[in-house]
Design a protein around this nucleic acid. Structure first.
Length: 434
RNA sequence: GCGAGUAUGGUGAAGGGGUUAACACGGCGGAUUGUGGUUCCGUUAUGCUAGGGUUCGAAUCCCUAUACUCGCCCCA
């Protein structure tokens, strides 16, 4: 048997996937962001220059391949680089309205060991604002996941925020940090020793040594900011407050990708048994990336979230999105003679927007009723010899078990009325979509 | 890259060397050929992830492979 590749999964009628996409689409429309869809594979160089040579994502997790003309290609491991490439290549800094506010939703690929909520092909939703250095953009970007998580019903949504400052501040800080840790390397875990060489900022992110006093007394980025960087951070916090978004300044958040400057943040929520995975999204400002990729100096800020992790969180928190899974009507026929008539009726109902299913294999009555239950059908329509002859249908309400005979010409109005009636009840939320 | 665990029909699973692979759900057929979701009866794995080994005998013990699950690293 051929199996799916490791770390991939099949979506089989998980309504939440489409629902989430729809919800995000509506939300981004309200924020007036533009939908971007960029290629799933790009020139490898884009990610090497963009995401950075020191991050694990690029050094050991990409799916690389050569195409038939021997070009180096990479399946995208994240969304930002592609959006930035598109921004530059299409010269959106010219005629396009600036800032360019982009959102995307699609598969990303990383060659990792799969585990709970983590796959090799996974979906990310993300947002990028290109062309403004104003702290308002940082705050707005942060507000998107926060509002999303609240809308989904997640509890204790929390923003952890920090600033790395501009390039100059960041560099000064990095030196100070290395000087601070150098004499104490033997007190840190093995991973931290590796990080010291590769990416010293990430030592601060270590979970093993988190409670080490050495860590708590380490130099803070905030102390190495120049005036401009300091003001930017203050402004971000100010705007968050004016949107009633709670945040905690956490000097240990540095993020893994090389391109971040100034604001970095993570949004977490309180989720049962999630441990370190309660970080549901991360992002920050990356003022140098556009220039690094040969575009004009363009400040930018964005974030991304993993769709699978969100769905996992909803599961863990037992959040039911009240998605209606049932069909409106299920059509049965007594005999082969009525089969075509039933088929025509099904088509007619479907074209009128009623979610309709039909007996596909001339089952007996008993199996038909069972099937109707399995499909969660609200109504069962029964077509027999008499119905065909006299142009009516027998329709049974599966809730009340009441059966009625309805003239064919009137059926659509009948269903329309009954289905809308039904949705006034407390249990049924099928017309309450966001 | 490192570490731990698991693998038995369509599904949940029992069995930890002895001939018929338990039980339950689901499916199909019937009691009941136009009204079910109750009940009852019948039926539903020539086979226990794959390959090799130990043994008179392996689903059961050993080895290898594969897949899945969960940690770590990393990240969303």
């Amino acid at each position: 048997m051929i199996q799916k590749p490791k770390g991939t999964y099949d979506v089989i009628n998980d309504k939440r996937v489409l629902y989430l996409h729809e919800l995000l689409k509506n939300m981004m429309e309200a924020y007036n962001y533009e939908y971007f869809r960029t290629p799933i594979f790009e020139a490898s160089e884009l990610f090497h220059r963009g995401v950075g040579e020191t991050s694990d994502i690029v050094t050991k997790e990409t799916y690389d391949f050569k195409d038939r003309s021997d070009r180096n290609m990479t399946l995208r491991p994240e969304g930002t680089a592609g959006i930035v490439r598109s921004f530059i290549e299409n010269k959106l800094y010219g005629n396009h309205a600036v800032p360019v506010k982009a959102w995307y939703f699609g598969p990303m690929f990383r060659y990792e060991r799969p585990q709970s909520g983590r796959f090799r092909e996974f979906y990310q939703f993300g947002v990028e604002v290109l062309g403004t250095s104003d702290a308002l953009a940082d705050a707005e970007v942060i507000s998107i996941p926060v509002n999303l998580f609240k809308l989904l019903g997640l509890k204790n949504v929390k923003v952890n925020i920090n600033t790395l400052g501009d390039t100059e501040s960041r560099l000064k800080y990095k030196e100070a940090l290395m000087e601070y840790f150098k004499p104490h390397l033997n007190e840190l875990c093995e991973d931290c020793n590796n990080r010291f060489e590769k990416n010293p900022l990430r030592i601060l992110d270590c979970k093993v040594d988190a409670n080490n006093t050495l860590m708590q007394n380490a130099p803070k980025t905030i102390d190495y900011l120049n005036e401009e960087s300091k003001k930017h951070f203050e402004d971000v916090k100010k705007y968050l407050t004016s949107m009633d978004i709670e945040y905690v300044v956490n000097p240990n958040i540095v993020r893994g990708l090389d391109y971040y400057t100034h604001t970095v943040f993570e949004v977490s929520a309180e989720i049962k048994d999630f441990g370190s995975q309660n970080v549901l999204c991360g992002g920050g400002r990356y003022d140098n990336l556009v220039a690094t990729l040969d575009g004009p100096e363009t400040p930018a800020v964005g974030f991304a979230l993993g769709v699978e992790r969100i769905l996992n969180a909803l599961d863990a928190e037992n959040i039911d999105l009240n998605l209606d899974n049932g069909v409106d009507t299920y059509i049965t026929y007594m005999d082969e003679a009525e089969k075509e008539y039933a088929l025509r009726l099904a088509t007619n109902l479907r074209l009128n927007g009623f979610k309709t299913d039909i007996d596909y294999c001339s089952r007996n009555m008993k199996s038909n009723f069972k099937q109707a239950d399995k499909l969660n059908s609200k109504f069962i329509i029964i077509i027999g010899e008499d119905e065909v002859k006299n142009n009516y249908v027998t329709i049974k309400n599966n809730h009340t078990q009441e059966s009625e005979q309805i003239e064919l010409d009137y059926l659509i109005y009948y269903l329309d009325e009954k289905l809308n009636d039904e949705c006034d009840c407390d249990e049924c939320h099928c017309h309450e979509e966001g």
